[in-house]
């Protein structure tokens, strides 16, 4: 892969990773069944699901860019759907509450009313259908973006350097994991610990995330280009 194209790939991938955090429903208060979303911080959950996608993408890295990106996206989606399904199961059987969203009256997909099932004094519980779909979209974006960073770094290093392939794959994996941990934390400043995915009003703050992730990704991309090509 041409180093300039790879650098652009790293930047685009980094920005997508940041955007994905807005789509994945997560809330720290969810651990007490007091809010809609997976029961952990949005940033850490997105990092976890993105890294699961990276693990899946690793198998396909030698088969080309498209398959690596799609594998990563679906690996992340698999992680998030397993987590959401079983989080709903534990809310159903462990704490005795039904999935309810706090940001809409009727589920746009199933049409089921939400308010009657919400415990008084809470903002919702676990993930209803539309919220879960938002999580899958977020995971597809995050896994795809992270895998794009991974594949681009791999492409840049194989094009320019003579390092052994196995070492290049691990270096590229570490760079992608680093981009995940960095760009997943940046949206935390606008989400402040809680989001319900695409139905949440905090989606309006997406441009702020976009700009901050763009700046950080440009730094990483240019630094990678400088480290690999110039130096």
């Amino acid at each position: 892969m041409d180093p300039i194209t790879a650098m652009i790939g790293i930047i685009i991938g980094g920005v997508i990773v940041g955007i994905c955090v807005h789509f994945i429903p997560a809330s720290a208060v969810g651990a007490m069944s007091a809010s809609t979303g997976i029961a952990t911080g949005p940033s850490m959950l997105s990092a976890g699901c993105g890294l699961a996608g990276l693990y899946a993408a690793g198998y396909s890295i030698k088969l080309g860019l498209p398959i690596t990106v799609v594998s990563g996206a679906l690996g992340s989606a698999l992680m998030i759907i397993c987590t959401m399904l079983l989080a709903n199961a534990i809310c159903a059987f462990g704490t005795g509450v039904a999935p309810v969203a706090g940001t809409y009256e009727k589920d746009p997909i199933t049409g089921w009313r939400q308010k009657p099932f919400m415990s008084p004094g809470t903002d919702g519980h676990s993930m209803p259908t539309t919220t879960a779909l938002s999580g899958i979209i977020g995971a597809l974006l995050g896994g795809g973006g992270g895998s794009l960073v991974f594949a681009s770094t791999y492409g840049m290093l194989t094009e320019v350097t003579t390092i052994a392939t196995s070492t290049i794959i691990t270096i590229a994996g570490m760079i992608a994991a680093g981009v995940f941990l960095l760009n997943c934390v940046l949206p935390a400043y606008v989400l402040v610990g809680k989001t319900e995915g695409m139905t949440d009003p905090k989606m309006k703050k997406l441009p702020k995330t976009f700009v901050s992730c763009l700046v950080s990704s440009i730094f990483i991309g240019v630094f990678m280009y400088a480290a690999v090509v110039v130096i």
Binding site: A26, G30, A31, M32, S33, A34, I38, A39, T40, M44, L45, A47, G48, C49, L51, A52, L54, Y55, G58, Y59, I61, K62, M79, C82, T83, L86, A87, I90, C91, G94, T95, S166, I169, T170, G173, M174, A177
Partner: peptide, 30 residues
């Protein structure tokens, strides 16, 4: 999997941590 084992362990550790935090801990907390 072509990644070095320590990187794989990091990936599994972070993933498992976020899964356990998102699923199992609900029963503890709630």
């Amino acid at each position: 999997n072509p990644f070095a084992p320590p990187l794989l362990a990091l990936i599994f550790g972070v993933s498992l941590g976020s899964i356990a935090s998102g699923t199992g801990d609900i029963q503890y907390g709630a």
